[in-house]
Amino acid sequence: MQKIQLILAKAGMTLARDVFRGDSPVGMPICGKGTELTEALIARFESMDVHNVYIEGHPIHVEGESSLDDLLLKLDYRFSKTLQEPLNLIMYDIYKAYLIKSMGGNSDQIAE
């Protein structure tokens, strides 16, 4: 999931969170998560004072942001003392899968 400015939103992206008028989570959402964006929908959000949306995956690269490989290396380091613990191994595997999914896949480290 990635929070992006509405101006960077493109048709085909999928909402990861409900969208609210004026970005404030009070009242009814104007569009539900899981919805695929269209040009018309983006224009509608614009007219309703929406400035940011949450998008599935990680479609926009932000300058200075860690790459998936960086993130996985850091994860390995954090777990380097406890990987032999069965419960920690379970947590490690879930986090690894989560990072890969949230960054939209593609890493040299994905062997399986």
Binding site: R78, K81, T82, E85, L87, N88
Partner: peptide, 12 residues
């Protein structure tokens, strides 16, 4: 803390 502590089985 640099390292993830062990998950305590009793908590799990």
């Amino acid at each position: 803390e640099s390292f993830v502590p062990p998950i305590q089985k009793i908590a799990w």
